[in-house]
Nucleic acid binder design. Sequence first.
DNA 1: GCCTTCCGTTTTGATATCCGAAACGTAGGG
DNA 2: CCCTACGTTTCGGATATCAAAACGGAAGGC
Lengths: 115, 115
Amino acid sequence: MGESRVPMPGEPVRGSSSGRPVMAAMDLLGRRWALRVLWELRSGPLGARALKERCDEMSSSVLYDRLRELAEAGLIEKDDRGDYALTVVGEGLGAALAPLDEWAERWARGKPTRP
Amino acid sequence: MGESRVPMPGEPVRGSSSGRPVMAAMDLLGRRWALRVLWELRSGPLGARALKERCDEMSSSVLYDRLRELAEAGLIEKDDRGDYALTVVGEGLGAALAPLDEWAERWARGKPTRP
DNA sequence: GCCTTCCGTTTTGATATCCGAAACGTAGGG
DNA sequence: CCCTACGTTTCGGATATCAAAACGGAAGGC
């Protein structure tokens, strides 16, 4: 199951031996649901089941793989109530993702509907 | 092989029935090498083989899947020389990814090396 | 013409990842 | 005690990705 290597900045990762931090980030975030989990946690801590619901019923096995990876990478942690929450650095990533949202809106305006 | 649905803003996508553009973006970018391909094209158009080399010898079958998806989504296109290049909207995404790079540097400073 | 070489692209079979559903353990309420 | 809700793990099958080989076309040299 999910015991593969978790990408970390400064280390060679799957897809790049350079150790450049952004490469580790792209490895970590280029996995299914990783971006989405972070996205949903921006608005506050959530329990596993609530998180799974918000992610359109993603598979729980993948959810826990992502949670473990993101926690190991230091982006999320469990709060005092046992919910999953962004760490300080994780919140920074959430903020760095804001331009993606704005861009997507522009993308949508450029291609409103498919013919 | 690669004939699965390409996420588009305004349509329900894998992972979200809402049609919110950012969900389509996260579906599209949450595939292996998608972020990386865009990243490498930011510095200018590249041929398929050059692109494959810059992406640490990614598998060519996946490369062409990603190229097809990104082209269909309107983020890249072939230029007059036959190289792959970012479209105007694709360049916008490249710009929206800049904060990710800055964040990754901060992430790396917070976690310089593993014990 | 006929090689060789470089390129874009597709195919193939093996491996890794993901999915969907079921199951487990625990804690609290009635 | 039973029921319910939750966090988490397990399992078999579906999909995505990998690595390497192959195909076909466009130069260029001989």
